[in-house]
């Protein structure tokens, strides 16, 4: 069966680290749901393996990691390798929020997180419409079953 690209695609969403900033997480959940995605929200205080296990459990098309307090840099190192280990090597990985502590150039941050295995990096990009548009495009080309 061929569905519309954005219909029913499964997204695992969560905040990483010991961050309990829940407002942004809830807003992202609502935005994705309104756009027709099926969201599995792990909410706050997650470790990388929580995302792996959830992605495996629901056969996710994409994983969306957020960090509001900058813990992202610490926890996201080597992120994709953990997905390799559970057989999800090609899953789409997104990260966004305030993902590092302090000030660095967007290029440095992009390079750093792409090095960790993320497909898209949205550091301090408040326009969520852009994120959703990108996600739709990426999923159209994606290889999730």
């Amino acid at each position: 069966m061929i569905a519309r690209n954005d219909e029913g695609k499964r997204i695992v969403l969560g905040v990483i680290g010991d961050d309990i900033h829940v407002v942004g997480n809830r807003i992202i959940e609502l935005a994705l749901t309104e756009s027709g995605f099926v969201v599995y929200n792990l909410r706050t205080r997650n470790r990388p393996e929580h995302f792996c296990h959830a992605a495996l459990e629901v056969n996710a098309h994409a994983v969306f990691v957020s960090s509001l307090n900058g813990e992202g840099e610490y926890w996201c190192a080597d992120f994709r390798r953990q997905f390799h280990a559970v057989g999800l090597a090609n899953i789409l990985l997104y990260v966004g929020g305030n993902i590092i502590v302090g000030h660095r150039s967007q290029e440095d941050i992009q390079r750093l997180f792409r090095g960790y295995g993320f497909d898209r990096v949205f550091h301090q990009k408040p326009d969520f419409a852009l994120v959703i548009a990108t996600l739709r495009e990426d999923l159209g080309l994606g290889n999730a079953q």
């Binding site: 407002v23 807003i27 992202i28 609502l30 935005a31 309104e34 756009s35 969520f128």
Partner: peptide, 15 residues
């Protein structure tokens, strides 16, 4: 805004 599928924008503005 909700029926337009952009309830989240309204929600952010309300917060």
């Amino acid at each position: 805004s909700v029926s337009r599928g952009e309830g989240y924008r309204q929600l952010l503005a309300d917060i």
